[in-house]
Design a protein around this nucleic acid. Sequence first.
DNA 1: CGCAACATTGAAGCTTCTCAATTAAGGTGG
DNA 2: CCACCTTAATTGAGAAGCTTCAATGTTGCG
Lengths: 244, 244
Amino acid sequence: MAKPARTSPSATFSFDVSRCLICSAKNLNMCGALEQDELAKLSGLARCESFSSGDVLFHEGDPATTVYNITDGAVRLSTMLKNGRRQVIGFLFSGDFIGFSDRDAYPWTAEAVRGAKVCRFTRPDLAKAAKELPKIEHRLLEMASADLSAAQDHITMLGQGSAAEKLSAFLLMLSRKAADRGGTANPVHLPMTREDIADYLGLAFETVSRCFARLEGAGLISVESLRIIRITNFDALAEFSDSE
Amino acid sequence: MAKPARTSPSATFSFDVSRCLICSAKNLNMCGALEQDELAKLSGLARCESFSSGDVLFHEGDPATTVYNITDGAVRLSTMLKNGRRQVIGFLFSGDFIGFSDRDAYPWTAEAVRGAKVCRFTRPDLAKAAKELPKIEHRLLEMASADLSAAQDHITMLGQGSAAEKLSAFLLMLSRKAADRGGTANPVHLPMTREDIADYLGLAFETVSRCFARLEGAGLISVESLRIIRITNFDALAEFSDSE
DNA sequence: CGCAACATTGAAGCTTCTCAATTAAGGTGG
DNA sequence: CCACCTTAATTGAGAAGCTTCAATGTTGCG
């Protein structure tokens, strides 16, 4: 119990929540969506923490001892490849959950994008809470399921279409995610850099920049500032992105 | 209980296995990896079925009533996009599990690649079995976790490197998966067409063809027949694929 | 044996990447 | 508060790689 749980099948709980998955699910804020009494129990276990731009929550390969729930800001998950290139696996926002796969080490690096606040739980604490509150494990499973859907959407975004189509799909996704967590859907806020977007979409950052210009020229978006994009023609943008 | 379970939180089980995820996990064959007594209970629920090349197990959007475990052959998961292009999400092999996300409809189409045998369960049957056998839900969660890892590997494969690097990574993945399920790692068997591979890697099928030729010319592989590729220099191929 | 689907190969064109220079934004210290 | 410096973003030109279109070759099945 004191020792970090291993992946052996002799775990004491039928479902060890500490083995939860990376979660970027919408509307599943552990600190927000649970009932009052559940929230009370959880908040006793959580420790809040702030990160500023570029700060590392954990590195790829670090022992996966902690589970994070983002309460403000954005976090970038990425892996570095031997050839020096970087693949951004996802962007997580307020309400999203960062856990880990069934491995003992984090499979990617998590860094704050322009500042982030999180509340963190230790694996044993969360496992104990889940034992008392079955709803938690249920929610974690829902999140895992949502993550898988998100990953498959990402695959489709990467595999299909031109650079501009990928970027369109990306903007629409950010817009939808912002709306899902109660924010505003239309002027899309981009906390990440062009290079972050490029590494997410498998493009060069110059290409991302050029595509913003082209989409603006086509009257689909308006680049109001570096980090604020207004979608001026939602339907046309969706039609253009054309994926799914 | 007779009605198909919905995604409401008022489910009768703390964890409804019928809401399991698409599973391409290795070494987690439900019909093979469980204990004898568990296997006995499960086999009573399973109904075996054979599909021949190109047969559709289910279509994208069909109600997700059935869960499949592949016992022989290979299955291709894919989605069609509005622009007519196709994204192959994954290839599943003997021992792999095809379920569904927490949606009521399958999010992709599953088709047999050159023949496949499966054993199928209904969602209610599987939920009932899981109630009696907690190990099953545990295994399903492991599979979901493995699926997420696989999806993230796919993302990296799609986002990074040249066409030849992607193809190298793909060959190494097939080799590893074959070894994982007890097969032979080196002459890699490709049940799928060049076009299937292309749609998996986000390339044109002509590019796949050309890359096979180039990898062969570079002495990394030997194309022994259309569907049998011998890796002649494992280390060099791994070094070249360079991902992760 | 012959047809149909699959695969290879070639050439042209286009998108994206790379390299490079310039401009804009953000943060720090005077 | 402004000047400066650093980082981020834009834009241009050339090169590389991939895709498309087209023709040919191969495999496998009825």
